[in-house]
């Protein structure tokens, strides 16, 4: 069993009227099956309302399954005795950087999680320092979060999770409210954590450019995983992605269009260099 494993996971949002009768049932997760290998960088793609945020909240036991089972580090999240252990193992970073920073000083915020876990003060200091260092925010430790840029705030939020020493981090659209440079800075910080500390990452997004370097991509639509594979495999299925309200990066799209027009540059091109090399090769072998 991998670090996060779902078996026929279902989540239903049930709306009731004043008398408590069921008014409507909306199925946000519709029988998910997946198994995440420890140490992987998983990208979860999906349009708004595809169920990806609901999935994220399950991994942190903020929501519990209406059906099926979810295990985090081998622990069933629906067992109320596991909640604290699950949250400790699978940290969560949310979309809005302002609404998840509790402390008024960067280092105090990073210390919030360990405080809740009852870690002794001396060790909290060590963890805070280390966490801030690994996201490159140590020199802002005594700053107010209000003065930081969006990307910096998200890195503080990530440090706040790291200080709890999780095995896995779930990031629910962490870049949706950031500008391109902030987006890049957060993505790089998380990739570094994945590489250097071996932390499993579930990166949820609808920006296609961000999933290029993931190990595995899940595409979600209507509460199901509709596509799964390496970025290159996923990106070669341009038309299918469009059906799921997604698109592909410019370069992938251009390669796809050239293929369609009969210029065989290969599907699923991820980077500019790849496309350039393919074109140079083709040009050279031209009769």
């Amino acid at each position: 069993m991998g670090i996060v494993k779902a078996s026929r996971l279902v989540h239903e949002y049930i709306r009731r009227d004043e008398e408590g009768n069921v008014e409507s049932i909306q199925t946000a997760l519709d029988g998910l099956d997946f198994d995440v290998k420890a140490g992987d960088f998983i990208a979860v793609l999906g349009h708004n309302g595809s169920g990806k945020s609901t999935l994220a909240k399950h991994i942190n036991a903020l929501l519990l399954p209406s059906g099926g089972t979810l295990w985090v580090d081998g622990k069933d999240t629906s067992d109320s005795g596991n909640v604290s252990a699950v949250r400790r193992q699978a940290g969560m970073v949310f979309q809005n950087p302002d609404n998840q920073i509790i402390g008024s000083v960067v280092e105090e915020d990073v210390g919030f999680g360990p405080e809740n876990l009852g870690i002794p003060s001396e060790e909290i200091w060590i963890r805070v320092e280390e966490s801030l260092k690994s996201v490159g925010m140590l020199r802002y430790r005594s700053h107010s979060p209000n003065r930081l840029s969006g990307g910096q705030k998200q890195r503080v939020a990530i440090a706040g999770i790291l200080s709890m020493e999780p095995k896995c981090i779930v990031l629910d659209e962490p870049t949706a409210m950031l500008d391109p440079s902030g987006r890049q800075e957060v993505l790089e910080a998380v990739h570094a954590l994945n590489r250097q500390k071996g932390i499993t990452v579930l990166w949820i997004t609808h920006y296609m450019e961000e999933v290029v370097h993931a190990d595995v991509v899940y595409v979600m639509d209507q509460g199901r995983i509709v596509m799964q594979g390496k970025p290159r495999e996923i990106f070669s299925r341009v038309e299918e992605l469009r059906e799921h309200r997604l698109d592909v990066p410019q370069i992938t799209l251009l390669a796809h269009e050239l293929n369609q027009a009969g210029l065989a540059v290969g599907e699923g091109t991820l980077t500019r260099e790849e496309l350039k090399d393919a074109l140079v090769r083709l040009y050279g072998s031209r009769a």
């Binding site: 940290g91 919030f112 999680g113 876990l117 009852g118 909290i124 200091w125 709890m164």
Partner: peptide, 14 residues
């Protein structure tokens, strides 16, 4: 999500 369950059992960084 950061394991806050009220004041009981908390330690202090400072």
């Amino acid at each position: 999500a950061r394991c806050y369950v009220g004041g009981a059992g908390r330690t202090k960084m400072k």
